[in-house]
Structures are given as structure tokens and as C-alpha cells.
């Protein structure tokens, strides 16, 4: 648990809503006219939590971009010439397209490097979990996702893109204010956040 913070809110919805984004506990609540003064402990550190996931996201996306680059260059029986057009692998290329073998080797290099980046991503998850920057549940889910990225070849990269996009979406303040509380209600999970009606002091 961290230090005690204080925030002021418009009491539009009475006393039922509490801004509690990082799992801290409410310590006191005072009504002052149409404003609600709430004290809460920091709980999970926002800066640490963000830093942890940002490092994992960075390593995953860096590796993904390599593999994607390799897949764009060659795959599914086609290769991409220097002129930007795709050709069948049965044709070796000419002075305008460049060599098919050069493209094939550069594609292999990019795909191989992209897969190898799953190792630092996995190590980052371990470091963040050891430093309590992410929860055990997050570490297991992140570790499993990175393992799929590492062992899934090119389709595993599709998984990583979907995973990272989901993480990006769920970290948006708009999503956390407007979608998450209603999803929690729908699934019967107690709300740990709520939509904010005025900016805290």
C-alpha cells in the first residue's frame, strides 16, 4: 500500500461512485456541498504498472514488426520485388525486381529475428513479476501470450498483434470510464473503477 491521496468529485450520483483506478482502498469520504472529497491509498503503483506493461509491449511489438516485415517480403508462394510488386516463387527476378534469393534470405532473417524477440519479452515479464510491477495473474497471461508468440511462428505474430491491441484498448481512459464498468456489471464483477464526473484536484 502506498501513500494516502485525496480527490474531489461532483456528487452527481450521490455517494455510490468512487474513483479507484489502481486498486487502492478508500480511507475517508466527506461531502462538501456538491463536491465529494475522497481519500484513498495508492494501491498498485500507476507508474510502476505502466512501466512494466510498456516494456513488455515494446519488446513484443518490436519483434512483431520484424516478423511482419519478413512475411511481407516473402510468403504463400510469392515474393516482393524491389519494384513493390509480388511475383511467384517459380520466377527468379530481373534487374528491376532484384534477386528472389536475396529477398528470401532477408525475409528469413527478419522472421528469425522477430521470433527471437520473444525471449526479451518473456524476460521482461519475469523481471516485472519479480519486482511486483505486475500481478501473478497478469504474469501468467502475459507469459502464455509471449510463449504463443515465440512458438507460433508467423500465425503466433497475429496472436501478439491481437493481444497488444487489446491491451492498448483496455488501457485507454475512455474505455475504462465508459465500457469497463458496464462489462463488470454484466458479468457480476464488483466495480473497482467508475466513470469520473469531474477531474480530481
Amino acid at each position: 500500500m502506498g501513500s494516502i491521496n485525496q480527490a474531489r468529485f461532483h456528487s452527481w450520483f450521490g455517494d455510490n461512485f468512487v474513483w479507484n483506478p489502481y486498486g487502492g482502498e478508500e480511507t475517508y469520504r466527506v461531502s462538501e456541498g456538491d463536491t465529494l472529497k475522497v481519500g484513498y491509498t495508492s494501491g498498485y503503483s500507476q507508474s510502476n504498472s505502466n512501466r512494466g506493461t510498456a516494456m513488455i509491449q515494446g519488446a513484443s511489438l518490436f519483434g512483431t514488426s520484424f516478423t511482419l516485415g519478413g512475411s511481407f517480403q516473402a510468403g504463400n508462394g510469392y515474393w516482393r520485388g524491389a519494384n513493390g510488386k509480388y511475383y511467384n516463387t517459380s520466377w527468379g527476378g530481373n534487374q528491376f525486381t532484384g534477386s528472389r534469393n536475396a529477398v528470401r534470405w532477408s525475409s528469413r532473417l527478419l522472421k528469425g529475428a522477430g521470433t527471437a524477440f520473444a525471449i526479451p519479452a518473456l524476460a521482461n515479464i519475469g523481471v516485472d513479476w519479480m519486482n511486483n510491477n505486475i500481478s501473478t495473474r497478469s504474469a501468467i497471461s502475459e507469459g502464455s501470450s509471449s510463449a504463443i508468440g515465440a512458438f507460433g511462428g508467423v500465425p503466433g505474430i497475429g496472436w501478439t498483434i491481437g493481444w497488444e491491441s487489446g491491451r492498448l484498448l483496455t488501457s485507454l481512459p475512455w474505455y475504462r470510464k465508459n465500457i469497463r464498468p458496464f462489462l463488470q456489471d454484466a458479468f457480476g464483477i464488483p466495480r473497482d473503477e467508475f466513470f469520473l464526473k469531474s477531474t480530481p484536484d
Binding site: 516473402a74 510468403g75 504463400n76 508462394g77 528470401r104 525475409s107 528469413r108 522472421k111 528469425g112 521470433t115 527471437a116 525471449i119 515465440a150 512458438f151 507460433g152 511462428g153 508467423v154 500465425p155
Partner: peptide
């Protein structure tokens, strides 16, 4: 497993050896 998701034989070998080594 990797033959189903990658057509380049050298990459199939790399992915397989990468997975086993990891």
C-alpha cells in the same frame, strides 16, 4: 506443426530448432 504454418523449409527447420532449444 510448423509445416502447416510456414512454407519455407529452412524456416520450418529454424522454428523447430528454436522451439526445442528454448
Amino acid at each position: 506443426f510448423y509445416n502447416g504454418i510456414e512454407e519455407d523449409e529452412a524456416m520450418v527447420f529454424y522454428f523447430a530448432s528454436f522451439a526445442i532449444s528454448l
